[in-house]
């Protein structure tokens, strides 16, 4: 399975994603510069965390107009491969309209960097099929703008279509509506989440729970 890690100016988790795919999943992986446009030979695109364009104006607001994003949109429409947006990647996907809602400033305004417990709300997606129903995953968050917000109608639809994939368990760290930590699009091929599975995929880092997500992606192609 061929992975591509999209690098925007200001991305800073691109190397972590690359490393996990190459050294832990043992899969071929390439960096894709944000000014490129060719994506046809990839099976999974990763939009990594970071501070694309300095988070100026709003997080992800400028990155969504990078040349690569038109190709990402087409890639999602074709439905051949998967797209996962992590942290800033999630913010970019919402700004680009590939996922509904918006991520705004954390409720208490603080940048929060710590391990959290996530509850798998939908284990039947291509990104969670290796998880058990309701499984709790220990994965870190690191963000200042992770407060998921949408209108009531969108929230009803997310619930109805089982698009809420992960919620924060017990404690809601950032004020997200319905404790949302990660959502999927209707078609089921685009996932966005604030926690960082790539930072929890090797025992030496304190948790390997991120691998439930990454290995689910891998198994979806078999």
């Amino acid at each position: 399975m061929k992975f591509g890690v999209i690098v925007f100016p200001g991305s800073n988790c691109d190397q972590d994603c690359f490393n996990v795919v190459k050294d832990v999943l043992k899969q071929p992986v390439e960096y894709i510069w944000h000014a490129d446009t060719k994506l046809d030979h990839f099976d999974c695109l990763m939009l990594p965390g970071g501070f694309s364009y300095g988070d100026y104006l709003r997080t992800g607001a400028i990155a969504r107009f990078s040349p690569i994003m038109d190709s990402v949109k087409k890639f999602s429409e074709k439905g051949r491969g998967l797209i996962i947006g992590i942290c800033n990647g999630f913010q970019i996907l919402t700004e680009a309209g590939l996922l509904p809602g918006a991520l705004q400033r954390n409720k208490d305004l603080r940048f929060i960097c710590k391990p959290v417990e996530l509850k798998v709300q939908n284990h039947k997606t291509k990104f969670t099929k290796k998880c058990k129903p309701g499984q709790i995953l220990n994965i870190p968050i690191a963000h200042g703008e992770g407060n998921y917000t949408c209108d009531e109608k969108t929230l009803r639809e997310l619930k109805k279509n089982k698009q809420i994939v992960f919620t924060y368990h017990k404690e809601n760290p950032n004020g997200s509506m319905a404790s949302i930590a990660g959502i999927i699009n209707k078609k089921g091929n685009v996932l966005g989440l604030m926690p960082h599975p790539e930072r929890a995929s090797e025992a030496v880092l304190g948790s390997e729970d991120g691998l439930f997500i990454l290995r689910s992606i891998l198994s979806s192609r078999k």
């Binding site: 104006l57 709003r58 607001a61 400028i62 107009f65 919402t94 700004e95 809602g101 918006a102 705004q104 917000t149 949408c150 209108d151």
Partner: peptide, 8 residues
């Protein structure tokens, strides 16, 4: 398009 996010 850019300067505001109509969702919020």
């Amino acid at each position: 398009k850019l300067l505001s996010n109509p969702i919020i």
